[in-house]
């Protein structure tokens, strides 16, 4: 099981790098969806040895459906409405973003070796969670389009989800559902806002919003 969890973490890192290196919005959205599904499987794998409970399976399914089906559906719709295919000129270019993504992993590995963390079952879980949060932050600050920034937010949320899963062994179902609902509402509202921006200004370049100040 440990090898499988490690492989899943490596997959998450590779998907993060793909998100950083790809300019097509549709493929970015799909990447984040695959990452959501992969990370949604994580609680099942973590609890495999203790045996699965119905509550756990329900939460995992809810998380997979939200992250893997609902988010991409909402975002792909927003992308179609705004009629943009690709991020044209990010603030940090793609090769540099990929290398920065690798750097965040190095940084989180170093950080984890210094932090007084409780003994985690897998050594890669916490570093990858931290680097996922940092990658989400990087996407938010380095991309111009509103949809890319929503993707950054979702990736950050994915990282926080893994971190919570690792540090707090047993999250009450109510809290977890609440978090999921929050994330869903946030993405939903952001996609509506994106739609409004594109209708009002014929673009969804968040950088140009600066010039609206009176």
């Amino acid at each position: 099981m440990n090898e499988l969890i490690d492989a899943l973490m490596v997959l998450a890192v590779l998907l993060n790098l793909r998100l950083l290196g790809s300019s097509r919005l549709a493929s970015c959205i799909r990447t984040v969806a695959i990452e959501g599904i992969a990370l949604g499987l994580l609680p099942l794998l973590l609890a495999w040895n203790q045996g699965l409970s119905g509550r756990l399976v329900f939460l995992a399914v809810a998380s997979i459906v939200t992250r893997g089906v609902v988010f991409p559906w909402v975002l792909l719709r927003a992308q179609r409405n705004a009629n943009v295919q690709r991020e044209v000129q990010p603030f940090i270019n793609y090769p540099l973003s990929i290398l920065t993504g690798v750097l965040t992993l190095v940084l989180s590995l170093w950080l984890c070796s210094r932090l007084p963390l409780p003994q985690a079952p897998q050594m890669l879980l916490i570093p990858v969670a931290m680097s996922t949060i940092l990658v989400g932050l990087l996407v938010i600050v380095s991309r111009r389009l509103a949809i890319s920034q929503v993707l950054g937010y979702i990736v950050m949320e994915n990282g926080i989800y893994v971190l919570g899963l690792t540090l707090v062994q047993d999250i009450p179902a109510l809290v977890e559902l609440g978090v999921l609902l929050d994330a869903f509402v946030a993405v939903f509202v952001m996609s509506i806002v994106t739609h409004q921006i594109s209708r009002e200004f014929d673009h969804i370049d968040a950088d140009q919003m600066d010039s609206l100040k009176g």
Partner: peptide
Amino acid sequence: QLLVAAIA
């Protein structure tokens, strides 16, 4: 970009 992916 492809080669940077290889480096990564």
